[in-house]
Amino acid sequence: MEVRTIKVFTTVDNINLHTQVVDMSMTYGQQFGPTYLDGADVTKIKPHNSHEGKTFYVLPNDDTLRVEAFEYYHTTDPSFLGRYMSALNHTKKWKYPQVNGLTSIKWADNNCYLATALLTLQQIELKFNPPALQDAYYRARAGEAANFCALILAYCNKTVGELGDVRETMSYLFQHANLDSCKRVLNVVCKTCGQQQTTLKGVEAVMYMGTLSYEQFKKGVQIPCTCGKQATKYLVQQESPFVMMSAPPAQYELKHGTFTCASEYTGNYQCGHYKHITSKETLYCIDGALLTKSSEYKGPITDVFYKENSYTTTIK
């Protein structure tokens, strides 16, 4: 009895394709271990004539594949690729409408935090270190965002349907971005203890939790000093293409032309909904596939993004 075979390709990165001759009487799992086709788990399936010449994702289970996976995804987590594939199996079914010149995501599976993050990423200057993220990001900007969303979920250790947080998501993504040249110098002034300067680099240099107003941050924000008295913390120097200011959701007025974009969060910790506000020729609110415009805006804002380049204080 002759062994019926077909020729397929296996890959971990969709760049390096490895030619395989597979036995049609055995499952993919018996031949390769966990195997995925377009995100779908085909591990328990036997090869079919229609699979001839198709590319299958496999887990990096030998040295060659491990090197290829690390170079593309910059992670050695053995569960990463499987999590990416199972997320992709959902995100490829989502709709990605162009809204006001940006790629958004039609609401499904509690994905409003991903839509808000995706919209924000198209408006701030950011370059990702893992080629996987950078490639998928370019495709997302062009309207094909399924891979990018699935990668975000995998890097953030999230599953489809789980509630997510924009600030946490951005923080994970910033860790995989090139923020080497970003720098922030802060000064804390206390009447009792004097003053202390701190220099922050990388992710810490672009994120701040405690106030939404970048102007206020430049002037000074009140913080408790270690001595128990009130101290003032203010920005001395900022070198970065953008800054992200966050605070627990509270009524906040966004003035046209003073910011790049913002995240609105309605609801409580267990259950809520994100919308995205962007400042173009007027203010726009993007909620999944829905767009509304207004000249002014007041609502429960939790993150505001500002364009920056270089700032030095005039406070002496």
Rank of each mutant, 00 (worst) to 15 (best):
E2D: 12
I6E: 02
F9A: 10
T11D: 06
V12I: 10
V21R: 13
D23V: 12
D23A: 10
S25E: 10
Y28D: 09
Y28N: 01
Q31D: 05
T35A: 15
L37E: 13
D38A: 13
G39F: 10
V42D: 01
V42I: 14
T43M: 06
P47Q: 04
H48E: 15
N49K: 10
S50D: 13
E52T: 12
P60W: 08
N61V: 10
Y72I: 09
T75V: 11
L81Q: 09
G82M: 14
A87E: 00
K93R: 14
K95H: 15
Y96I: 05
P97S: 01
W107D: 00
W107T: 00
D109V: 11
N111F: 07
Y113S: 02
L114V: 11
T116V: 15
Q122M: 04
I124Y: 05
K127C: 10
N129H: 11
A132L: 06
Q134C: 09
D135T: 09
D135E: 14
E144N: 12
A145M: 06
C149E: 07
C149S: 05
C149H: 02
L151E: 06
L153S: 10
A154G: 05
A154Y: 02
A154K: 02
Y155R: 05
C156M: 07
N157W: 07
R167V: 07
E168S: 08
F174D: 05
N178I: 04
L179M: 08
D180V: 04
S181I: 07
S181T: 12
V188I: 10
K191W: 09
Q197V: 09
T198I: 14
Y208D: 01
M209T: 14
G210A: 01
T211G: 01
L212D: 02
L212G: 02
S213D: 14
E215I: 03
I223Y: 10
P224Q: 15
P224K: 11
T226G: 13
G228S: 04
G228N: 04
K229F: 06
A231H: 01
Q237H: 15
Q238W: 05
Q251K: 07
Y252T: 11
L254M: 02
L254R: 07
K255Q: 11
K255C: 08
K255S: 07
G257T: 05
G257C: 05
G257Y: 02
F259D: 04
F259V: 06
T260H: 03
T266K: 07
T266Q: 03
G267Q: 05
N268C: 08
Y274I: 01
E281C: 08
L283I: 15
D287I: 11
T292K: 12
T292A: 08
S294T: 14
E296I: 15
E296A: 14
Y297V: 03
G299L: 03
G299F: 00
T312V: 12
T313Y: 14
I315S: 15
I315L: 15
